[in-house]
Simulated scan of single mutants.
Amino acid sequence: MIKVLLIEDDDIIGEMICMYLTEEDFHVLRTRTGQDGVAELNEFSPDVILLDLTLPDFEGTDLCNSLRQVTEVPIIIISSNAKVSEKVEAFTVGADDYLCKPFSMHELKARILAVSRRSKQAAAVGAASLPVDQPLKCDLDMNLETRMLLVRGESIEMTFSEFELIRLFYEHPQRVFRREELINALRGYDSCINDRSIDVHITNLRRKIEENPKDPQYIKTVWGVGYKFVK
């Protein structure tokens, strides 16, 4: 049973989501404030977080960023704001998907199943595909079992999507990935993520792993095509 933490202050929408997901055999816990959501995070231990961007005590993107600092649980933003800039900001601070209100409950279920499946597969594949502490390069070490990246001996905090990108690059060194391939690898075909979001993730990764992000040695741009990883 998938456990869903719903942080939504609108009673009508909140109750609709709770009723539908409960009928579909999800275990749902709803909070009306960001503070209560954070308080329930460890005790409830959700598999997926549904986060409204408009809360009485938090800006949704600020809360998303705070949650991402303490958990790798997939976060789906639910919002009435359909602006691309808002979506890009959400992905930048750690969201894994973005669903615009009003939305179909069937689509919501599909999104939850998709991010949950990718999260579980990533953990399973990561544990099996690379021995613990196998080095990427002299100053880059990745542990897929614990989902940790060490850069020059220091642990680097990453979002779920950032880790999935660097894992994908590592497993296919020198391969040139088109942006469309990276989008599909992260979100599936039904995602709101776009080319701009991928570029933002790449920029953030370079800032975290490159000695000089303006002259990257690991993540190379292949102009007019996409990106590749150089060991």
Rank of each mutant, 00 (worst) to 15 (best):
T33V: 06
S129C: 11
T33D: 04
E154G: 04
V176I: 15
E180V: 12
L108R: 01
T71G: 05
G34S: 10
L150Q: 12
L205P: 05
L186E: 02
S79V: 09
L113F: 10
G226T: 12
D190L: 10
F91D: 02
T33R: 07
P56G: 06
D47L: 04
C192D: 13
I2T: 13
L140C: 07
I7L: 11
R178Y: 06
P74F: 08
I202F: 00
L150T: 11
R147C: 07
R207S: 02
T159F: 08
Q174G: 03
L51E: 10
E211V: 12
Y98R: 04
Y227E: 08
W223S: 13
K87T: 13
V93W: 00
I166S: 05
F160S: 09
M148C: 14
Q35F: 05
S197G: 15
L130W: 14
D97I: 01
I77C: 12
T203Q: 13
S129A: 15
D199A: 14
V84A: 14
L51W: 10
D9P: 06
V125K: 11
E157W: 14
E210I: 03
I166Q: 06
T203W: 11
E211H: 08
V84R: 15
C100R: 05
A124H: 08
D11F: 11
E107Q: 09
V151P: 01
I7V: 15
T71E: 02
I77S: 09
P102F: 05
I209Q: 07
R167H: 14
P135K: 15
K208T: 01
F44P: 10
H106D: 13
I202Y: 02
V200M: 08
G226S: 11
F58N: 11
S155L: 12
S85Q: 13
G14I: 05
